[in-house]
């Protein structure tokens, strides 16, 4: 974790209620699947947002306007300086991916897939991606992934773009590993569908957090290894650690 001040250099809508914010400044070395925690003036708790892209001089996030805090964020102008905790959480590990990992993003869960794909491509691997959304208005991130040379399929629940249905309706026949981030029902469907073929995977969870760095125990979940903090031990968990029952209450 690092505490830093970052400056907004771009804050634009990329889909319905979804914004991309580019932040410039020394943000530390962020890996795929990690998140940052942003202090929004006038709000007591920070907003934990997953990292879409990171480089030496800044970070890009993609966030959805859900409540007052993210609505405030959507109105932030270029030049706004933000108090941010960076390099949070235990992100995706690319070591076990094999040559042809599958990246599955559901809705906003698409956001962390770009940095992950970049790293996998950099390591000489050949990731494919399936991105699922509710409707064509919600779709973002597909072109960016394609520009990395990743084979991308898009699904929409209403069929307004790409394959009609869910990400599980557009899975390729073969893949070496799964990286998933999205709503719980989506991740569980992916988990169940890849159960029999013995393909390993990592799943990134969302949680209502207090601190975001492991102190308050506000986001604890039960795993096969005992209780874990989504913010600090996760948000990414390996499939063999997951106990679904406690995730849906």
């Amino acid at each position: 974790m690092e505490k830093t001040v970052l400056t907004v250099i771009e804050n634009v809508p990329v889909a319905k209620d979804v914004y991309k914010m580019r932040l410039s400044g020394a943000a530390g070395e962020t890996g795929p699947g990690q998140f940052i925690n942003i202090a929004v003036p006038g709000r007591f708790l920070r907003r934990p947002i997953s990292v879409h892209d990171a480089c030496a001089d800044g970070i890009t996030i993609i966030y959805k306007v859900i409540g007052g805090g993210t609505e405030d964020m959507s109105r932030m102008e270029k030049g706004t300086r933000l108090d941010v905790l960076t390099c949070l959480g235990n992100g995706f590990d690319t070591a076990p991916s094999g040559d042809a990992p599958l990246l599955l993003g559901g809705g906003l869960g698409t956001a962390p897939m770009y940095l992950l794909a970049k790293k996998l491509v950099c390591e000489g691997k050949h990731p494919r991606a399936v991105l699922g959304f509710a409707s064509a208005d919600d779709v973002f991130g597909a072109d960016e992934l394609s520009s990395l040379g990743v084979d991308v399929a898009v699904t929409t629940v209403d069929g307004s773009l790409g394959v009609k249905g869910f990400v599980t309706d557009a899975l390729p026949e073969e893949f070496s590993y799964v990286y998933a981030c999205g709503p719980l029902p989506m991740m569980r469907a992916v988990y169940d569908k890849t159960k029999t073929d013995g393909v390993g995977g990592q799943y990134s969870f969302e949680a209502r957090m207090g601190c975001g760095f492991g102190a308050c125990l506000g986001c604890s979940i039960k795993t096969t290894g005992g209780s874990r903090r989504v913010c600090r031990d996760g948000p990414v968990f390996r499939r063999e650690e997951i106990i679904w029952e406690t995730r849906e209450g």
Partner: peptide
């Protein structure tokens, strides 16, 4: 003790609620 079910955290004006 595992503690209480989640969500355990709620934000408030100038504060928060915890139910760890």
């Amino acid at each position: 003790r595992f503690g209480n079910p989640t969500p355990r955290i709620a934000e408030c004006p100038a504060g928060m609620i915890n139910s760890v």
